[in-house]
Each structure stands twice: as structure tokens, then as C-alpha cells.
């Protein structure tokens, strides 16, 4: 849903929940999306509460109005129409509660998915950059090792082969070391991510969406 507002329409909690803003153009300042979402959730909750309160007041006004029209002593017990309106109100409130639960669950799932997607992109980009760096470094060190072998004065016809062997050995050593370090770092990341997830889960259970998900 984009941000449109027509003066003849009332703003509903659903609209607030589903609202999306276009991103600010490149080079222009925008608000932090997390904070905007968090605030929208507050606004939505407030709107629901206000609507509920308004509905109760409306009922009360109608009840009093009927009592005035019907004469003071006329009302004994609940009339069938009143009972039905009461039932409608109870059901409406139950529905709003259900709507709120579904919206909360969706919001939570959206945040988790966004976070996972972002991490996925970051990890991939990191891995790519790292791979390039490792290759470059391995190549450099291996070249040095090969040159050292070449400049060995005791060498003979096997010099080229020995140089290549030295290159490859150094290359694979460097590569293996990096791979091990990288895999360990990845495992570390996963563990931290798990921790972040369980703490944001706890925050969601406490009824408050976390304004900021801990960065890894």
C-alpha cells in the first residue's frame, strides 16, 4: 500500500499496518526504517484501542438514550436488542484481538526474514571479497617462494619444477589456513545470530518489538 489519503475516507488500523513508503532517492536523507515501522505499530495499536473505546462509548450513549426515551423505571434487565448489540461488541473485540495477534506474528516473521535476507547478502558479499583477497595473497606468497627457489644457487635443470612445486605448496598452505579461519568465523557468526534471534524472540514475547535488532 502506498501513502495516499483521501479526505472522505477514515484511516484504519489495517492501513497503518500495511503502509509502505517509497525509499528516499539516492543522496536524500530518509528515516530509519526500523524506527518508522516501530512507530507505525504503536500508532496501529493506539488506533485499535481508541476504536474499541469509541465503540464502548457509542454503546453507552445509545443505551442511555434508549433509557431516557423509554422512561426511567421502564428498563428492567437486558432487552433482546441490547443483548445482541452486546454480543456484537464482544465478538468485534475478539476479532480485533485475533487481528492483532496475526499482525504481530506477521510482523515478527517479516523482521526475521528481513534479517535473514540481509545476513545472507552480507555473508555472500563478504565471502566473495574474502575469496578474492585470499587468492591474491596466496598468489603473492607463492610467487615469492618460487622466486626464492629459482635464486637458489645450488639449483640445476630441476629448478623450474622445484620453483613450481614451491609455488603450489605455499599457495595451498596459505589457502588452507584462510579457509580454516574463515569457516571458524562463519560458525562464530551463526552462533551469534542464534543468540540475537532468541533475545529478539524474548523481546517479542514481552509484547514490544525490539527497536533495534542487535548487529552481528
Amino acid at each position: 500500500m502506498t501513502v495516499t489519503y483521501r479526505s472522505d475516507e477514515r484511516l484504519t488500523p489495517d492501513q497503518v499496518q500495511g503502509v509502505s513508503f517509497p525509499s528516499a532517492r539516492l543522496g536524500r536523507r530518509g528515516f530509519d526504517e526500523e524506527h518508522v515501522r516501530y512507530f507505525c505499530a504503536l500508532v496501529e495499536r493506539e488506533l485499535v484501542t481508541l476504536l474499541n473505546e469509541k465503540a464502548s462509548l457509542w454503546e453507552e450513549v445509545n443505551r442511555l438514550r434508549r433509557r431516557v426515551i423509554g422512561g426511567e423505571g421502564a428498563v428492567v434487565g437486558i432487552r433482546p436488542e441490547d443483548a445482541h448489540v452486546q454480543a456484537v461488541r464482544i465478538l468485534s473485540n475478539a476479532q480485533l484481538t485475533a487481528d492483532q495477534y496475526v499482525a504481530d506474528a506477521q510482523q515478527y516473521s517479516r523482521e526475521l526474514a528481513e534479517e535473514a535476507r540481509r545476513r545472507h547478502d552480507e555473508v555472500l558479499a563478504e565471502a566473495r571479497a574474502h575469496a578474492d583477497q585470499v587468492l591474491e595473497q596466496a598468489h603473492q606468497r607463492a610467487s615469492q617462494a618460487a622466486q626464492l627457489e629459482m635464486s637458489d644457487p645450488g639449483g640445476n635443470g630441476h629448478r623450474d619444477a622445484r620453483a613450481e612445486l614451491a609455488y603450489l605448496r605455499t599457495f595451498s598452505d596459505v589457502y588452507r589456513t584462510h579457509l580454516r579461519a574463515y569457516l571458524e568465523a562463519l560458525l562464530q557468526n551463526v552462533a551469534e545470530w542464534e543468540r540475537a534471534e532468541s533475545s529478539s524472540l524474548a523481546a517479542a514475547r514481552a509484547g514490544l518489538p525490539p527497536p533495534e535488532v542487535p548487529r552481528l
Binding site: 472522505d8 484511516l11 488500523p13 445482541h84 454480543a87 456484537v88 465478538l91 468485534s92 476479532q95 480485533l96
Partner: peptide, 20 residues
């Protein structure tokens, strides 16, 4: 137009009445 002033309460009432 008069009824629509009540916003979300209107469809809430409608569906609750229908389901009851």
C-alpha cells in the same frame, strides 16, 4: 456518508452481526 464516519467500526459490526 454518515455511517462511513464511524470508520472501521462499521465493518466490524457488520461481520459480527453476520457471524452471530
Amino acid at each position: 456518508a454518515h455511517v462511513a464516519m464511524h470508520g472501521d467500526e462499521v465493518p466490524l459490526f457488520f461481520y459480527a452481526d453476520l457471524f452471530l
